[in-house]
Design a protein around this nucleic acid. Structure first.
Lengths: 145, 145
DNA sequence: ATAATTAAAGATATATTTATCTTTAATTAT
DNA sequence: ATAATTAAAGATAAATATATCTTTAATTAT
């Protein structure tokens, strides 16, 4: 469905939202371990999410690390896809046709339409906060242990 | 959603199912043009679909080309994903976790579950024949013209 | 049989994705 | 101020996906 980069971005963001606060920042190593992701690659990805503090915030130096603001936690999960330049995935034709639309549908368009709408709805309405809350509450996991 | 290879495979198969018969085979050039796909890459992909005549059949030489048997037309669209080794996509965790399951769900599992079921259902029940019939009947398109 | 046509197979090329490593800059504690 | 710590930035490497081109094999028409 998504690229590895985006998977790591989603996992890292959810993990940070669950475990960190402005007072308790997370280092790259902890994040990578907590989400079963390669550390240096995750670092690169967090740079993208941190750019302009769009989604993740960071501070260099001792006791530095990554955290997410309460404001950013309210962003829809879709904003992570946006930051990774993969939001197009949600809206594309499932057969990869550029011209596919209501008036010029591909053979799978009508069937896929409903599914696509639900996918879009999921990513546009579910917030980072909500996913992190789930993980905190019950038996929800963000790694492979 | 899918790789370019799989998109081309889906488009080519549907196109062949709609336009060809054992009597009227289609050349690689016609298929590539009809589906807005790169010819030589499409040729490679058709080799995979033709292997063991699993999905597409082919004949070399003059008046040769690609066609699909009535039997193969009855295969679910999923069999194309199988042939392209991309059927895993339908069943994977949306966050890319190996251990994600009912009993060990990722933060998106419960929400995504319903959508995934519909995706699987679409690809497992819809046949190649049905998609080709749609395209024949009405205003359904398989290219970008 | 020969020539023409077409797909199959194989070699190669290019682009993109995934991943790591090194250097730099920022921040903090002492 | 200095040293230590941490992320940012940049360079590089490896793997995979995408794409093309050439040679071979199969088939058909003549």
């Amino acid at each position: 469905m998504f690229s590895k980069s985006t998977e790591y971005a989603l996992r890292a963001t959810i993990y940070i939202a669950q475990k960190s606060s402005k007072e308790l920042k997370l280092g790259i190593k902890a994040i990578a371990e907590g989400t079963d992701s390669p550390p240096s690659f995750t670092a690169k990805i967090l740079q993208e999410l941190t750019r302009d503090n769009k989604i993740i915030s960071s501070v260099s130096g001792p006791n530095g690390g990554f955290y997410i603001t309460e404001e950013a936690k309210k962003l829809p999960v879709r904003s992570i896809l946006d930051a990774m330049d993969e939001d197009g995935m949600l809206y594309r034709c499932i057969l990869g046709l550029n011209q596919c639309s209501e008036t010029k549908p591909c053979p799978m368009h009508i069937q896929y339409k409903h599914i696509k709408e639900q996918l879009i709805n999921l990513f546009e309405t579910k917030t980072i906060q909500e996913l992190a809350a789930d993980i905190r509450d019950g038996e929800i996991f963000i790694n492979n242990d």
